[in-house]
Nucleic acid binder design. Structure first.
Lengths: 196, 196
DNA sequence: AAAGAATACTACCCGTTAATAGTTTTGTCA
DNA sequence: TGACAAAACTATTAACGGGTAGTATTCTTT
């Protein structure tokens, strides 16, 4: 969803062709680090945007080399962009991979939960270390935005570590709890509901 | 990735059919709340697992109603599962939707950055409120795991809010920085590199 | 007959990657 | 001077994995 909207944003400035969009995107958000968008994604996304009528092919330029298909944003596109800017970003799904792993290790006995936690903690420390190192490669005078991005990641890692500590200290309580069983629902037409 | 592995974990206990897997999954990780897996996803994932040879169709049971295709985990499947349990969960990509939105609002002038921040903050507070409310619907005596899941989400939301404050207080610094330009690379064969 | 559980499937969207292909510019070396 | 290497420039196609929407068939109970 975000590449899509980013392209709309860039096209709102002026019409561009695919390669140019790729360059602009990288410049804005991926200073050779972190967000690595492949050119092909730009083109597929562009195609889908066009299909949805948010973008249209304007003309075909030709300036040495292959032809350039130049795209422009449409009215509908501008509308979608405004929409995007004026709405909050939905939080990522609860779908937490580590959590499900931990629960499954508890529920199935296929792995040692404490070990799972330890592995994860090691990973988090490693990540934290890497992120911090990378963060310090940027110059606050000119690349403050990049630094903020890393700060966010770092804060999340710290939160994860705190959470992990909390969970570990109470893992026995969880173990003691009954395994959740799939609840059985009565078949057939339900009885007339008596509301509570 | 996680549904996939979760199915492997459940099949490691014993062979099951799709509907059963769906029920078990919901019981373990989605107490009617948060993680809502559609049955169709179970089936598509199962099909893909089978194609990769991690799971195989064992037999077709029949117990009232449509036939049940019963799946079992294979050796390769068990191997993949062990692999999963013994490796850390990779952090989610840097790909941060809010960040790119903010940067684009700064770079393109198509939206007011302060407003973007405010909208996001409102969203975060809303989410925080909802999460907290939901969290309190669970019983720590029997559903501690669910509560932990919410705790994690809550901690992340709090981190996001702190981060947002930090960013907002320094937004002018960012604004003052030169817009990142796509860097121009020299064409042609590169000069013989004089290593530093 | 109504209603919903039990069970399954297909088609599709979106983000993403891998692989490929042709043109132009420029440095290097014989 | 000319041949070639190397890389930028520009784009396309095929495919995969996660995920959703919608539908279809039976069976059981009221």
């Amino acid at each position: 969803m975000s590449v899509r909207n980013a392209l709309l944003g860039l096209l709102a400035q002026r019409p561009r062709h695919g390669y140019e969009l790729h360059a602009a995107f990288e410049a804005v958000v991926g200073g050779e680090e972190n967000w690595d968008v492949k050119p092909s994604q730009i083109y597929t996304t562009l195609a889908r945007l066009q299909e949805s009528g948010l973008v249209e092919e304007e003309s075909v330029g030709q300036g040495g080399g292959p032809e350039k298909r130049i795209y422009a944003i449409t009215r509908a596109g501008r509308h979608a962009l405004v929409e995007w800017f004026s709405s909050g970003v939905a939080r990522e799904h609860q779908r937490d991979e580590f959590f499900i792993k931990l629960i499954l290790s508890l529920a199935t006995g296929e792995a040692n939960p404490r070990k799972v936690i330890q592995t994860q903690r090691a990973k988090l420390y490693q990540d934290l270390h890497d992120m911090t190192a990378q963060r310090n490669h940027f110059d606050p005078k000119t690349e403050l935005a990049q630094i903020f991005l890393f700060d966010k990641a770092i804060m999340h890692l710290e939160a994860d570590l705190r959470w992990l500590d909390m969970i570990e200290s109470r893992i026995d309580e969880v173990k003691r709890q009954p395994l959740p069983e799939p609840e059985v629902k009565p078949r057939g037409r339900p009885k007339k509901e008596v509301r509570s």
